[in-house]
């Protein structure tokens, strides 16, 4: 009955005469509910598959949430749970051209990356097409600013990949062909980025901690400034947190 209570609270907060969310969120909720029934899942099962709270899912399905209450990550989790690529969903809960983009939130010591919809398109594809040669070989992330003790660095060309070496974007096609020969498992992922001093762009040998979902990894950049976080599970979707632990000098 948690849903009834939460929905009642929501209507109370909206005041008399309130309608439900935006037309887009209402339509998206209908779509998710239909796809769930088509897959013979009840709300609890889908919520469990997608790692969401069942009451939240019911509120979403019934169009009781606004677009700002539905992060792109939630849409991605639902798409994976329902076996649909993001680009294969006929509609999204956002107004057209107002879809959430990557957001980077930098504070002293910690940098948060909330992946936007365009980043999550490749993320979902990589998860659903794990064994397919058409799956993207790398998921590109935006440049990140890192701060600690008044100093600043950049982590550039960041990307997640299932290859044990960084993949320059110009080489993606070759990697696709190589992977097309098959045989490689896609359950182990790496995150690579090049760390550099913000002012001089010289490689920075800093130690950085990455938290992704429930996973935590630490990497020390070498002389080339390459940060390498190994053994990541891509299915553990969540915002990425970077923290500088140590910086020489």
């Amino acid at each position: 009955m948690a849903f009834a209570r939460a929905a009642s609270e929501r209507f109370r907060a909206l005041g008399p005469g309130a309608r439900r969310g935006l037309p887009e969120t209402l339509a998206f909720g209908t779509l998710i509910s239909d796809l769930r029934l088509r897959n013979h899942l009840d709300c609890l099962q889908l919520a469990e598959r997608a790692g969401l709270n069942p009451v939240y899912l019911l509120m979403l399905e019934r169009g009781l949430l606004g677009p700002d209450e539905i992060p792109a990550m939630v849409v991605a989790r639902l798409a994976v749970a329902l076996g649909r690529r993001l680009s294969g969903l006929p509609l999204l809960p956002y107004a057209v051209d107002a879809e959430p983009e990557d957001t980077v939130d930098v504070t002293e010591g910690t940098t948060w990356l909330q992946p936007g919809l365009s980043t999550l398109v490749s993320w979902v594809s990589a998860l659903l097409d794990a064994s397919s040669p058409t799956a993207p070989p790398a998921i590109r992330l935006p440049d990140l600013e890192l701060r600690m003790g008044g100093r600043r660095w950049w982590a550039r060309r960041a990307h997640l990949t299932d290859a044990p070496v960084p993949i320059p974007s110009s080489d993606e096609y070759s990697w696709r062909l190589l992977r097309g020969r098959g045989g490689r498992s896609r359950d182990r992922w790496w995150l690579f980025a090049w760390a550099g001093e913000a002012d001089t762009e010289q490689p920075a040998t800093i130690e950085v901690e990455l938290t992704m979902g429930t996973q935590r990894r630490v990497s020390v950049a070498g002389a080339r400034g390459l940060l390498s976080f190994d053994g990541l599970d891509l299915a553990d979707l969540g915002p990425l947190r970077f923290r500088v632990l140590r910086a020489p000098g």
Binding site: F3, S8, F11, P16, G17, C43, L58, R62
Partner: peptide, 14 residues
């Protein structure tokens, strides 16, 4: 859940 929601909407519309 649809029934509860319909009840709440009925009330919200007065």
């Amino acid at each position: 859940s649809e029934t509860f929601l319909a009840l709440l909407e009925l009330r919200a519309r007065g």
